[in-house]
Amino acid sequence: MSALAKIPVTVVTGFLGSGKTTLIRHLMTNAGGRRLAVLVNEFGSEGVDGAILKSCADANCPEENIVELANGCICCTVADDFIPTIEQLLSRPVKPDHILIETSGLALPKPLLKAFDWPEIRSRITVDGVIALADAEAVAAGRFAPDPAAVEAQRAADQYLDHETPLSEVFEDQIYCADIVLLTKADLAGETGLAAARAAIAAEMPRTVPMLPVTDGAIDPRVILGLAAAAENDLAARPSHHDGDNEHEHDDFASVVVDLPEVRDIEAIVASVQRLAREQNILRAKGYLAVAGKPMRLLLQSVGERVRHQFDRPWGSEPRRSKLVVIGEQGDVDEHAIRAGLGI
């Protein structure tokens, strides 16, 4: 088969809360006649993003074409989960025209790209492009990009200090693999923040790639689909901190699923989540909440102290179960402390 006969796959990567699911929802509703399939992966045993995307299913991307892998990071479960899932998608009577893969916020894209060379699938699919999302406001504030001056100051103070944090390694590996970087939450960052984010990322990139501002995932699909990058054949240009003998470990991070009683005060739960981020260094929280007297479920998502929430759809026959998936660095995720911080 020629490369033109291969089904294109777009890998959407980016740190926790950078807007990957929002982008994919936009692509699903603006498919441009393509029949899509979506593979969504989340860190931890339970996912939320898959349910969000299934609520957007339509003729272009029916619910059976939205597959969730919620049993570990996709870059570490290639043989057990990714390859069989791709094979199942390709064996369906009506094959997708384009496959979107949303990686976990903690995943490294390069091991996933290497999987496209597996004999079972390499003649049938190709990596059309890797789209890395970066929270422009956070990057501008220096939270997910290294500060060379600060590193030098730390080295001067302690020559034995490990200057590369797990978070910065993940962030850098994601942008190193990118064909396009989307600077998300552009409305929050403003022009000054966008300029600072561009400069911080450009200083780390091994090659020049386009960087485009995006708000609420709204971008013309023609800009990011159809790149024909064949990224699986271009691995040398996409360096990783974990090239060579270094193994990618997820022991740096932990998650916990917290069941909650019915919520009576939305602002109180928002304040509790903000306090967890501030006092317990929680990176991310997301989930659905049952609110007293409301027939619709409340979708709550947070990145650090930034919390967003909205009613997304009626509970219907689904049990009114409130739960939050909480993610943080290993040692910061204490289930008892988190439950106490949420007032349960």
Rank of each mutant, 00 (worst) to 15 (best):
210 P>A: 08
157 A>R: 10
93 P>C: 04
326 V>S: 09
254 A>L: 08
77 T>C: 07
5 A>D: 05
40 V>S: 07
112 L>I: 13
143 R>I: 00
300 L>A: 07
4 L>P: 03
283 L>I: 01
265 D>F: 05
204 E>W: 02
188 L>K: 15
82 F>L: 06
256 V>L: 05
214 V>C: 04
270 V>T: 12
200 A>P: 00
268 A>K: 14
226 G>P: 02
201 I>R: 13
118 W>R: 13
338 I>W: 13
287 G>K: 01
145 A>G: 11
20 K>M: 01
49 D>C: 07
244 G>A: 04
21 T>M: 03
302 S>N: 00
2 S>G: 11
287 G>C: 07
123 S>Q: 06
320 R>E: 12
19 G>F: 11
255 S>I: 09
159 Q>W: 15
314 P>I: 01
201 I>H: 15
95 K>V: 06
92 R>A: 14
197 A>S: 06
300 L>D: 08
7 I>Y: 09
210 P>H: 13
251 D>M: 13
307 V>Y: 10
161 L>C: 10
86 I>H: 06
205 M>S: 12
198 R>H: 10
118 W>F: 10
142 G>P: 04
19 G>R: 03
99 I>T: 00
79 A>Q: 15
142 G>H: 07
122 R>I: 02
53 L>V: 09
238 R>Y: 04
4 L>W: 08
213 P>Y: 07
45 S>W: 07
120 E>V: 11
199 A>S: 08
111 P>G: 06
4 L>S: 10
57 A>Y: 12
199 A>G: 05
211 M>C: 02
211 M>Y: 13
235 L>T: 09
166 P>D: 12
269 I>C: 04
41 N>D: 14
66 I>T: 00
217 G>C: 02
216 D>P: 03
287 G>Q: 02
114 K>I: 06
29 T>N: 15
215 T>H: 15
23 L>V: 03
158 D>N: 14
216 D>R: 15
108 L>T: 13
62 P>G: 09
339 R>M: 14
204 E>L: 14
198 R>K: 14
115 A>P: 05
329 E>T: 11
326 V>C: 11
273 V>Q: 04
304 G>H: 00
235 L>F: 10
237 A>D: 14
198 R>M: 01
177 C>A: 15
22 T>S: 08
243 D>W: 14
265 D>I: 04
182 L>I: 08
233 N>S: 03
230 A>G: 05
146 P>Q: 09
181 V>H: 05
47 G>Y: 08
245 D>V: 05
163 H>I: 14
124 R>P: 01
76 C>W: 13
180 I>A: 04
337 A>Q: 13
257 V>A: 15
39 L>Q: 07
44 G>F: 07
284 R>W: 14
127 V>E: 00
266 I>E: 09
84 P>V: 00
177 C>Y: 08
33 G>K: 11
160 Y>W: 09
